[in-house]
Write a protein that binds this DNA or RNA. Structure first.
Lengths: 228, 228
DNA sequence: CCGGATCCTTATAGATACTG
DNA sequence: CAGTATCTATAAGGATCCGG
């Protein structure tokens, strides 16, 4: 927080803390749990070490995240969100829902594995009653990184890093984040991706299809006219 | 949008559009309706003309706002949000609710009249059942700028610039935005401000008290420990 | 390796003055 | 009133290097 807007408005205060370049994307990468410096660098292609260091220091000072030393034998240093930092979730949800409707700027480019999984949470629509409320656990591997999902009675109650902890998941998926994004974005059907060998399903295919269909169809453009 | 994060994540896309310095505050000032270049400059102390021009141009190009020529005899040029730009409301709400709970950075400084009125909307709590659901219209003058409020059955259904259009409001208030903020922030009671001559009420005092009490008590600090 | 710090260059914002 | 122009200060981008 080198420079501030100096306003008494809580929005301006939030921007004092989060408004600098890369700051909110650093926080985004911590939404699913602690990450090391190196993990952040890899998830944020384009950020320079100096900027990443500065943002981490500033976000630590303002109480958004904290630095923690993992106990031996890991002995790694990680960054993780504070309780207050984790309460930025509604901000991310609102920004994602808004950005995806951009009528002018197209949504193109790579995406981090974490973001790909979190997109499911953001756009998962429990109110959609085209499907019956179902219950299942999923284990999704994106680029060899494991994630687990827990749908309980039609609600996505858990999105986390790591494989299924106790019993094996009902459905296990192995794919790349790009294929996962393509399927979620309706650019490719689940069947097509499977047939092309881009995605491998272990367990009930239809249960996976339910998950893929749960996010409301996302208009990535054309929702508004530029004159809007 | 000179520089972009180049990601396929909708959050990053939103930040490509809104992440540059001052951008989101410019949009904030348009939440209650069109404003002229000069109005924006006054509401955003510290912004330089060059930066304001650039932000307006970029936000226009990305479809967040549009430039409009008012018909004669006004003949003024104003900036206003597009439909899509107006859909940033959940983002502002989320940012305001988060920022106000900052455990480290204090919330101090001036605030624009628009922001002072919008704070009421952000923190108005229709679920609070300490009071009966009431219905009333208000006309609030902050630093000689008129705003109108409409509470219907305990819900704040309208916050707008300008005086009451048809019939006179049930309650008319004349004060400064600083006093208004102090009263809403529980730093001063309505009675105290009135007794001190800082606030003048025409109409039913208790109906105004209902409005002031409607926002949930806002903890501006201490909600989390810095270690949180 | 990991977790940065340093150095240099480029881009953006701040300050002030000025113009159609 | 609605901006542009000019200059300076600061922050980000790019590459390299260094200590544990």
């Amino acid at each position: 927080m080198a420079r501030t807007y100096g306003e008494g408005c809580p929005i301006a205060l939030s921007l004092d803390i989060l408004g600098e370049r890369w700051a909110l994307l650093v926080v985004r990468e911590l939404r699913l749990g602690p990450r090391r410096y190196r993990d952040l660098q890899e998830a944020l292609p384009g950020i320079t070490p100096a900027v990443l260091s500065r943002r981490l220091k500033e976000l630590e000072e303002t109480g958004v995240l904290r630095r923690r030393q993992l106990p031996p034998p890991a002995s790694a240093q990680v960054y993780e969100l504070t309780t207050w930092g984790a309460e930025l979730e509604p901000v991310f949800q609102a920004l994602a829902r808004w950005g995806v409707r951009s009528p002018v700027v197209p949504l193109t480019g790579e995406i981090s594995a974490d973001s790909a999984m979190l997109g499911l949470r953001t756009f998962f629509n429990a109110d959609d009653r085209d499907h019956q409320p179902w219950t299942a656990t999923y284990e999704v591997w994106l680029d060899r990184e494991p994630y687990r999902l827990n749908v309980d009675n039609g609600r996505l109650v858990e999105v986390a890093r790591g494989p299924s902890p106790d019993r094996p998941a009902d459905v296990v998926v192995h794919t790349t984040k790009n294929t996962w994004q393509a399927v979620l974005g309706r650019k490719q059907t689940l069947s097509e991706a499977t047939a092309a060998g881009l995605l491998e399903v272990t367990g009930d295919f239809d249960t996976l299809q339910l998950l893929i269909d749960a996010p409301t169809r996302i208009p990535t453009s054309g929702r508004h006219t530029p004159e809007g």
